[in-house]
């Protein structure tokens, strides 16, 4: 389908809090690339260059408004020495924690994302994507926030325990890892990514209190996002933003991705003109949606947040489950094209 403006122009317009031709849609697909290439997930993840062909085919098939340069989250843990567990039907997971003590991580040199696998290969894939893309669609890179990365490096229980038993060391570790986060984000931007999704599920109200977010995360998040040479979306990765949301504009992020338990309409209202808002299609429910349910979910999000621009329709998790069928993704796109034309009309 021919459209008047490019996806990149559409996204930039909405992030400038203006109404483009229609609501942009980010189908944040990762594992579906394997299906496009006829590969099992372990085969797909064995070679980061599969990202290139997978993303190009998915964008061509569904016509959504981004290329998603997210390889897999555990890749950052691998850069720190972790193993990875691969599955036939789900995303790779980080293996055993690489450290038990915070001091072990603080005393270790940070990995160079341009020199360590699989990050350097991912950068190569982003370069190839950029060459094919020629600024047609925004290319979205991903980093784990320095407050969330220790979950993979230390294990969740060890990391939460540190908030109570070693708060000073915990703050030092977040600041230390922030240098890596900024370098990894900037390497992706230099390779051709247009924007960075700053994944910080630990920041959410699902995981920590507002006080813990302020104590351990907020200042470093602001510093790191300030050091990243491109726009960032603060991504709660399925979790509930809750009261933390009010502090996100102060981080310097250009947009925020909400959880499906957040009130999209209220968030859009409170953030209007300050932050773009992405969300909040429920990726878990999406697995079993009928076409009618997909359309209803799209309409609900559009009615809540699309008027006035500043909104991108996306799933709440940042990775649509492997089990979501193509028919549902086509139904999401068809509904977005039908009901997301600006100016938004009253939706039945």
């Amino acid at each position: 389908m021919s459209e008047a403006i490019t996806p990149l122009q559409r996204v930039l317009t909405t992030l400038g809090h203006q109404e483009p031709d229609r609501v942009p849609v980010f189908l944040l697909l990762t594992m579906h690339g394997a299906r496009e290439l006829g590969l099992s997930l372990p085969e797909y993840y064995a070679n980061p260059h599969n990202l290139v062909e997978g993303q190009l085919r998915l964008a061509e098939k569904f016509g959504h408004d981004c290329l998603y340069a997210f390889w897999y989250a555990a890749g950052e843990a691998v850069a720190f020495g972790s193993e990875t567990t691969f599955y036939e039907d789900g995303p790779p997971n980080a293996g055993e924690p690489v450290a038990r003590q915070l001091d072990e991580l603080l005393s270790r040199p940070l990995p160079d994302p341009t020199a360590v696998s699989p990050l350097k290969e991912t950068l190569g894939a982003i370069q190839q994507l950029s060459q094919h893309n020629r600024n047609y669609r925004p290319i979205i890179g991903v980093v784990m926030a320095p407050f969330s990365l220790p979950v993979m490096l230390l294990g969740l229980e060890r990391w939460i325990t540190a908030f109570y038993e070693e708060p000073d060391q915990a703050r030092r570790l977040v600041a230390h890892l922030g240098q890596f986060t900024a370098a990894w984000a900037n390497a992706q931007l230099a390779a051709g990514a247009h924007a960075i999704a700053f994944f910080d599920p630990m920041a959410s109200a699902t995981m920590v209190t507002l006080e813990q977010f302020q104590t351990f995360d907020l200042d470093v998040a602001r510093q790191v996002i300030g050091q990243i040479h491109g726009p960032c979306a603060f991504h709660f990765a399925s979790a509930r933003a809750g009261p933390q949301l009010a502090l996100v504009p102060g981080t310097g992020a250009a947009a925020v991705v909400l959880g499906s338990q957040d009130d999209l309409k209220a968030a859009k209202g409170s953030l209007r003109g300050q932050l773009g808002v992405l969300g909040t299609l429920n990726g878990i429910q999406m697995v079993r949606w009928t076409g009618e349910q997909a359309e209803a979910a799209v309409k609900s999000c559009i009615a809540a947040a699309a008027p006035g621009g500043g909104f991108i329709l996306a799933d709440q998790h940042g990775e649509i489950p492997y089990f979501v069928p193509d028919e549902t993704l086509h139904a999401v796109m068809a509904a977005a094209r039908r009901w997301g034309q600006y100016p938004i009309r009253a939706l039945p």
Partner: peptide, 13 residues
């Protein structure tokens, strides 16, 4: 667990 919190009918499925 998280998937059940995000889809309140999943436990039945």
């Amino acid at each position: 667990g998280a998937p059940f919190n995000m889809d309140r009918t999943l436990w039945q499925q």
